[in-house]
Computed example of a mutant assay.
Amino acid sequence: MKLDFDKKFYEEIIENLNDGLYIVDTNRVIRFWNKAAERLTGFTAEEVIGYSCSDNILMHVDEEGNSLCKERCPIVYAFETGKGQEAEVYLHHKDGHRVPVWIRVGLIRDKDGNIIGASELFSDLSSRDAYRLKVAELESIAMLDALTGLPNRYYMEHEINSRIEERKRLGVPFGILFMDIDHFKHFNDTYGHDVGDKVLKMVAQTFVSNSRPFDVYARWGGEEFLAVIRNVDVVELEKIGNRMRMLVGESFVMHEGKKLKVTISVGATLFRDGDTLESVVKRADTLLYESKNAGRNRITVG
């Protein structure tokens, strides 16, 4: 029996995909944008259709911070090679932070086989759902920072003590990332505390969107953030810290038509035999200030 579906049937399927989907012509101008693309990026169809995908919209970067829209665009590669492309990238959310996604680019051809456009399907790779469950638990016991939505210092102290006990019993290693927004006082003095609060939220959301499900990021106080990174060696700890530093630096908030960016400095250290909560945090804090003194926007490991 032949199934005969009309155009509306297929349109409803596309609109209700869990993955974001957009379609561009050969000039990379967006011609279609589904509901999941709105949900994953924060941009509505009305805000993007008719614009190039690189016009302050998605602006993909790789894990080293390279701009793919200008130099290594998967859609351009697909046009040039005549083949579909896949890649893990970080897209720009309307709120400013970066979101990890897996993209799949397919070519669209006319009846004669000529390329007339391309589609990009993107899947959210963030651990946001797992984090939401954690947040729901934290809210019930008043361990949540009201501004950023991250766990607060009280919770983080409890978390570090739990990881210390886990290491003693099971030998599971963990590390600490101590992170601080560079020149944040000057930023607040220049743009005001409301904009400063937006930046704090943006930085926090970058951590949430790009963290592993079993790691914890918290607001330690002011513009300081602390992360407990489980089951890592020093090489992996540095890699994670550098990735977060890069992603924050590639994010921005809009203010009066201007892109406002910040950077973070990072101190990173593994928990060692004989350490306590106080000693490992103090060592990470000291390493953070080595990063500050060396010029900021860098990580120091020790």
Rank of each mutant, 00 (worst) to 15 (best):
L170V: 05
S162I: 06
L200Q: 06
K168Y: 10
K201Y: 11
E166V: 06
G192F: 09
E165D: 13
I176Y: 07
I160L: 09
D194R: 15
Y191C: 09
V216N: 09
G196A: 03
S211M: 15
G192T: 10
V216H: 07
I181P: 05
R212V: 10
Q205S: 11
V208Y: 05
F184A: 01
F174R: 03
N161Q: 12
D194S: 15
K198D: 11
N188Q: 06
D180H: 04
F174A: 12
Y191P: 13
S209D: 14
V199P: 01
G175L: 02
P173L: 12
F178Y: 15
V208H: 06
V199R: 03
T190V: 03
R167H: 09
F178Q: 07
V199K: 02
F178C: 05
V172I: 15
Y217I: 13
G171C: 08
G192S: 06
R169W: 04
I176F: 03
G171K: 08
L200A: 06
N161G: 09
H193K: 10
F184D: 01
M202Q: 06
H183G: 02
D197W: 12
V203Q: 06
I164R: 04
F178I: 09
F184Y: 08
P213V: 09
M202W: 08
D180Q: 02
N188Y: 12
S209G: 00
R167G: 11
V203W: 10
M179K: 01
H183L: 05
I160Q: 00
Y191L: 10
N188P: 03
K198Q: 14
D197P: 02
G196H: 07
M179P: 00
E159G: 00
T190F: 03
K185H: 13
P173T: 13
R167M: 14
N161Y: 03
R169Q: 12
N210I: 07
I160G: 03
Y191D: 13
V172N: 10
G192A: 06
I181W: 08
N161W: 01
K185R: 14
P173M: 12
H183D: 15
V172D: 08
Q205V: 00
R212W: 00
F184E: 01
V208A: 04
D197E: 14
V203R: 02
E159I: 00
E165H: 10
V208G: 04
F184K: 01
Y191A: 11
I176K: 11
H186W: 00
L200K: 06
A218N: 12
I164K: 05
N161M: 07
Q205W: 13
V208W: 06
H193C: 08
